[in-house]
Design a protein around this nucleic acid. Structure first.
Lengths: 231, 231
DNA sequence: GCTGAAAATTGATATAAAACATGTTTTATC
DNA sequence: GATAAAACATGTTTTATATCAATTTTCAGC
């Protein structure tokens, strides 16, 4: 089990969440109160679907997947997220259990904030509330477009979308050292590992991407975007 | 084009949204200001994806579908909703365009509320904000489970889920006069009309449902729930 | 550098659902 | 009430992707 530590306070934290920038010093102290900092290893469960969501979990550093667990081991990855993301906001003012499981793709440091303290702050600070709502809505809209992608596009369109997402949103570079296994990519695209492998092969042959070990480079973004749009 | 009318004010409205019950009289007057009431006929577009979301649209009476429009006429229905639902909340504090299109399944009366007035109220009334956040989160969680259903279940599981949803959430009765065509049901389950027809036939043969014209009765809820869970 | 296990690829086959084609019923219109 | 049109049903073919099986590559641990 990882050992909690407290390197910095919220007030002087440099990797502060966008939302938390709306808080003044006394409000930052309120959430600092009872804050926990924990580091998870690759593959470890950060929060478990169905468990009591007593805290909101801020990703300070790292890279995670959020997924819904079905009956027969059938899971669906809702989203992949990195530092700056707040896990568990969906449990605010509702049934306070986690609606998904979060697992670290690589070593991940998080801060835990008391859910009650957070909802108190929402009442005190309207622009904080506005930022949080904006954040929630961003997530929702992203989940809508994921719903569209997975139900309306076929294999190549889905992979194109995931690759572009990794390049644009996660790694923010056309070339990246992929921390994900084929199994992870297959889960993200909702394909079998074998089918995924074939689509990757096709993309390589079509000179859309260059794969070298764990490194992926998007070599023809225009065409990949086309496939994402129309595939 | 339907003609706006104002039968009642927000203050004395009997079909008030759950959220709006948090507002006091002066706050209700604030949203009453500039409110519009409009009735749409079956099949009419209530809001269009991509258009400026200047208003939040409250469904006072009726039954609608919200869907995302893709390129080649490929649409995906996000949800079906009836009276009490607020359309466009997802555009609060973000890019204020509608992220989906809403179409009336039957004659539908709505109230339009100014988005800006609504966000002002959020600052004034914290418990109103809390209720709205709760509402947003409910939607999000429902969209997660839809994502799961459509990607992990096959035809019979999907239809079972939609039928149960119609019975439980929309019509609130085991027997209902379905306003939806097969094409609508096919869109909801993300199946072709032909495949849908076959699954319905199968359900009839298995005595899970009784179909008589436009009326559907769920005759074996237990087994339908099983199929929904495991299919 | 070797060795075994896990991960990834590749090929062959199976399958669920789409697409196509055609027939039947329901609904709307004159 | 006749007729056209739309909605629905059903049988056949096609297709995308899963599954199964076999092989190759990668990588950690000795």
């Amino acid at each position: 089990m990882p050992i909690p530590e407290k390197s910095v306070t919220c007030k002087n934290c440099l990797t502060k969440s966008e939302c938390f920038k709306e808080l003044n010093d006394s409000q930052l102290e309120m959430i600092e109160e009872g804050r926990l900092e924990v580091t998870f290893n690759k593959g470890e469960v950060i929060c478990k679907q169905g468990m009591l969501a007593s805290h909101v979990i801020y990703i300070k550093k790292g890279f995670v997947k959020l997924y819904i667990e079905g009956n027969n081991g059938k899971n669906i990855i809702l989203t992949i997220e990195k530092d700056g993301y707040l896990i568990g906001l969906q449990s605010l003012f509702g049934k306070n259990i986690f609606h998904y499981t979060a697992v670290a793709y690589e070593e991940t440091t998080v801060c835990l904030f008391d859910m009650k303290a957070l909802s108190n702050l929402l009442e005190l600070n309207a622009s904080f509330a506005a930022k949080l709502i904006a954040r929630l809505n961003e997530n929702t809209i992203r989940s809508y477009s994921r719903l569209f992608c997975l139900t309306q596009k076929q294999s190549s369109g889905r992979l194109a979308e995931i690759l572009l997402c990794l390049s644009n949103r996660i790694y923010q570079s056309p070339r990246f050292n992929l921390a994900l296994s084929r199994k992870d990519l297959a889960e993200l695209t909702v394909l079998s590992v074998e089918s995924l492998s074939r689509v990757i092969k096709e993309f390589k042959e079509d000179k859309l991407i260059i794969v070298d070990g764990k490194t992926i480079e998007i070599s023809d973004r225009k065409r990949l975007e086309m496939i994402c749009e129309n595939g």
